[in-house]
Design a protein around this nucleic acid. Structure first.
Length: 525
RNA sequence: GGGCCGUUAGCUCAGCCUGGUAGAGCAGAGGACUUUUAAUCCUUGUGCCGCAGGUUCGAAUCCUGCACGGCUCACCA
């Protein structure tokens, strides 16, 4: 409550008080012309159709017809984003959710009277109005609504950073000194969305991605479920959690770091295919691909394994790409690469991938010490990073440092070390390896999946092994999960994918912050 | 956490190197203009120059520290 009004804001407050004194409510509860409403896009489409259906005419007749316009009365409502007043006539560009349309008003019998025009001239960029009238085409060819009546719907006090736009001959729009400072845009996302239409488009795409994923799983017999976000024991991933507290119970709770252990309990319960789309919370650093809370998709399917999940993941990606990109070729552009999401994706073992990009065949180094020595000999990691890492973490490090960035076209990497995958089933005949894959696109890890471990005795061993380690991200053993498993869990395949990264991929954004409506920022001073 | 860069008007930015007390365009205000579209033309206001300290007769400018941000490295299955 300590906002200091700027000079512009004080001017607008004075204007607002003048309106109130004149008996005009600057924030009316409802519109007057609601039943007549057309969107800007509908109006433009209607005018094009009307124009095309005009009969054969002389040029003079045609000009007169365009000027008179379509006779139907309709109303436009939205925010004023540009204003061009000249004497006793003027235009304001009105933007709604569908686009922009200009409203024309002048003093005259075909439009509004002098008193109304005085108020019209007083409008500010950012004000919401409604205007009623008929649609016509100006002599410069612009679809326009000729106002015969209009009202203020909401007065803008603080000036929005609305940029001027110039239509280019090729149809594109050139924006001058747009609101572009990333911090200001994220902190005041409302202003960003208000003045940068392409930002709104990112979030429409995001919504379409999520809707399409639901369609995909719903139509394949998956049940959408919701599991606890507040958990007494966290697990299902290697990450540090956020801790919170329940006052009445005097109990510490954790914000979930994954859905995995709860979803697999549901397989014990008899649901064969479940999925959840929701928020995970991980107490770790922020970066261009990490936010403390992020949206995750996980699914688990009884009687599937790592390879049938791989098939399903391919099908899913292809489905979403075609729906979302509205391009039947399923291609997207990301960081300057054209990426083809159509199946089949490349499949390569982790061993072969690391061999290809580092020259190291880790199967030749069966223990931590020999692998660490080889990595140092090849100068693949600094010594202080190598120190203290398990063999599995070293292998994972090689993947992250030397392989991931090269995996631009969709690639599945499979066969992972057991000690970094405590919830995955071991490979038959190769106890150091588990049935797991990760999907990479655009040089970025996108998803993670495995044949889920359903052997309660093996799972108990894995929890114990983890506890013995010194990894501060190790998950605590979950006794209740083991109890569930002992009742019997069907063999199943599970899958997790970051929706934020998927959205980055489909909207060609380098930063996760661009695809989160309100990304985490340090507190404002 | 490390490195680099940045923070000047509501927005986008110049000025800093080479210290002399702050500028442009847009937005705003006043005026002209009854089909404009980055409308145009005339007039005009606008600043804790991120914060704190230091050097200096004098600091937006040089130095130090801090805050915040961007990029990057590390960390992040």
């Amino acid at each position: 409550m300590n906002h200091e009004y700027s000079e512009v804001e004080r001017d607008r407050l004075a204007k607002l008080n003048k309106l109130r004194t004149a008996g005009i409510d600057p924030y009316p509860a409802r519109t007057r012309f609601g039943t007549l409403r057309v969107t800007a896009a509908e109006a433009a489409r209607r005018l094009v159709a009307w124009q095309a259906a005009l009969p054969e005419q002389t040029p003079d007749e045609r000009a007169a017809a365009l000027h008179a316009g379509e006779p139907t009365i309709c109303a436009l409502m939205g925010r004023i984003v540009a204003k061009r007043i000249m004497g006793k006539a003027g235009f304001v560009s009105v933007e709604d959710d569908s686009g922009r349309l200009q409203v024309y008003a002048r003093i005259g019998p075909d439009s509004i009277d002098a008193a109304s025009f005085e108020l019209f001239k007083d409008l500010d960029l950012g004000d919401f109005i409604e205007a009623k009238g008929n649609l016509f085409i100006t002599k410069t060819g612009e679809p326009t609504l000729r106002a015969t009546d209009w009202s203020l719907l909401s007065k803008s006090i603080s000036p929005l950073p609305i940029a001027k736009e110039e239509k280019q001959p090729d149809g594109s729009v050139k924006r001058y000194s747009a609101f572009s400072d990333p911090e200001s845009r994220y902190r005041q996302r409302y202003a960003d969305l208000a003045v940068n239409p392409e930002v709104r488009e990112i979030f429409r795409t995001r919504a379409r991605i999520i809707r399409t994923l639901r369609e995909f799983f719903d139509s394949r017999g998956f049940l959408e479920v919701e599991t606890p976000i507040l958990q007494p024991i966290y697990g299902g991933a290697a990450a540090r959690p956020f801790i919170t507290h329940h006052n009445q119970l005097d109990q510490d709770l954790y914000l979930r770091i994954s859905f995995e252990l709860y979803l697999k309990r549901l397989l014990v319960g008899g649901f064969e295919r479940v999925y959840e789309i929701g928020r995970d919370f991980r107490n770790e650093g922020v970066s261009f691909k990490h936010n403390p809370e992020f949206t995750q998709l996980e699914f688990y399917a009884a009687y599937m394994d790592v390879f049938s999940v791989m098939d399903l993941a391919e099908e899913m990606m292809q489905y979403v790409a075609r729906e979302v990109l509205a391009a039947s070729d399923g291609k997207t552009r990301f960081r300057g690469h054209e990426i083809d999401l159509v199946r089949p994706w490349q499949r390569i073992t982790l061993r072969d991938a690391i061999l290809e990009f580092t020259g190291i065949d880790y199967t030749q180094y069966p223990d931590r010490e020999s692998l660490a020595a080889a990595i140092l000999a090849h100068k693949l990691m600094p010594a202080d990073v190598v120190q203290g890492k398990t063999r599995g973490k070293l292998i994972d490090g090689l993947l992250g440092d030397h392989v991931e960035k090269n995996l631009v076209q969709p690639t599945f990497i499979y066969d992972y070390p057991r000690d970094i995958s405590p919830l995955a089933k071991s490979k038959v005949g190769d106890p150091s390896t588990v049935e797991r894959f990760e999907g990479f696109v655009g040089g970025m890890e996108l998803c993670n999946a495995f044949s889920e471990l359903n052997d309660p005795l093996d799972q108990e061993q894995r929890f114990l092994e983890e506890m013995r380690g010194e990894d501060e991200e190790a998950q605590p053993p979950d006794e209740d999960y083991l109890r569930a498993m002992r009742y019997g869990m069907p063999p199943n395949g599970g899958f997790g994918m970051g929706i934020d990264r998927l959205t980055m991929l489909f909207t060609n954004n380098d930063s996760i912050r661009e695809v989160l409506l309100f990304p985490h920022l340090r507190k404002e001073e």
